[in-house]
């Protein structure tokens, strides 16, 4: 899609993939972090990781099994998180460990069998050998995520403010919530091959966390999180490929560094002089 800007085909596809993956994940990430359910996002990304490794091992589409696995996790965790008190800490811990174990079991086994070409991409991501369809699918889910936020802006704003108050106001919270979980499942599963299962949640959490340090409106969060995520990811893909560095980890480190700087210079944390 961006061939007119970037003549090198490999770099162009990598930049496109990183751009769309980061937009989808960061837009949904704003909702996740603001609702304080990032642990659910975290567990879902690892479920996608486990699902994909099982799928690849059995020779079926890794993306489809990834979506399936993260949807199953969403179906387990969604209802639990609806309770006013959320005693899910232990459950999340157990599920997370289980997902990680399944993923690593199959990845290690595939490495042992010598069929580990795709498996290492699952761990660390791979921006070089992408299918065109993957990029189109990522562009599609980014578009859907943005559309979702635009159409349900007022409901999402109220739910982010306080889910119980939103529900008491007569807002239909549940359909929005399950649509959100569904889109997370698709977004993380499609992003998995590019970013890698070990780092995926960085895209879900960190851009939104950086934006939160500066934004005083919900609108600002939804505009700046994808802007930050997109520009850092594009720069990471570009720079990494030019210098033969692993793109996913490089970009993740850049995000984390940016977050630290953001916390340090955040106007929200400034103490007035003379106080």
């Amino acid at each position: 899609m961006l061939e007119f800007l970037i003549p090198n085909n490999i770099i162009c596809h990598a930049v496109e993939a990183m751009l769309f993956a980061s937009i989808a994940c960061s837009v949904l990430g704003v909702i996740i972090t603001q609702m304080s359910i990032s642990s659910i996002g975290f567990t879902m990304t690892h479920a996608a990781f486990a699902g994909a490794s099982v799928g690849i091992f059995f020779g079926v589409s890794g993306t489809a099994t990834a979506i399936l696995a993260s949807l199953i996790i969403a179906a387990i965790l969604g209802p639990l998180s609806e309770k006013a008190r959320m005693p899910t800490d232990t459950i999340l811990g157990v599920l997370f460990g289980m997902m990680m174990a399944i993923a690593i079991f199959f990845v290690s086994y595939m490495q042992y069998l010598g069929t580990a070409v795709n498996a290492s991409a699952l761990l660390f991501g791979n921006v070089v050998s992408l299918y065109r369809e993957e990029i189109y699918a990522l562009a599609g889910i980014s578009f859907v995520a943005i559309l979702f936020v635009a159409i349900f802006a007022k409901e999402i704003t109220a739910i982010i403010f306080n889910r119980k108050i939103a529900e008491a106001a007569g807002i239909r919270v549940r359909p929005i919530y399950y649509a959100l979980l569904f889109m997370i499942a698709i977004s993380v599963s499609l992003s998995l091959n590019i970013i890698g299962g070990l780092l995926l949640y960085v895209w879900l959490v960190t851009p939104a966390a950086i934006a939160y340090q500066f934004c005083t409106t919900v609108r600002g969060l939804f505009l700046s999180a994808p802007l930050i995520a997109g520009s850092v990811s594009v720069a990471g893909a570009w720079f990494g490929l030019q210098h033969s560095l692993p793109v996913g980890p490089l970009t993740a480190v850049a995000f984390s560094g940016l977050f630290l700087i953001a916390v340090l210079i955040s106007p929200k944390r400034r103490v007035p002089k003379g106080a």
Partner: peptide
């Protein structure tokens, strides 16, 4: 939290407005 008093009060009408 990125919400003003005005934001919160108008939210009271969101349920009536519907999707």
């Amino acid at each position: 939290a990125p919400f003003t008093v005005g934001n919160v009060v108008i939210m009271g009408r969101y349920g009536i407005l519907g999707y």
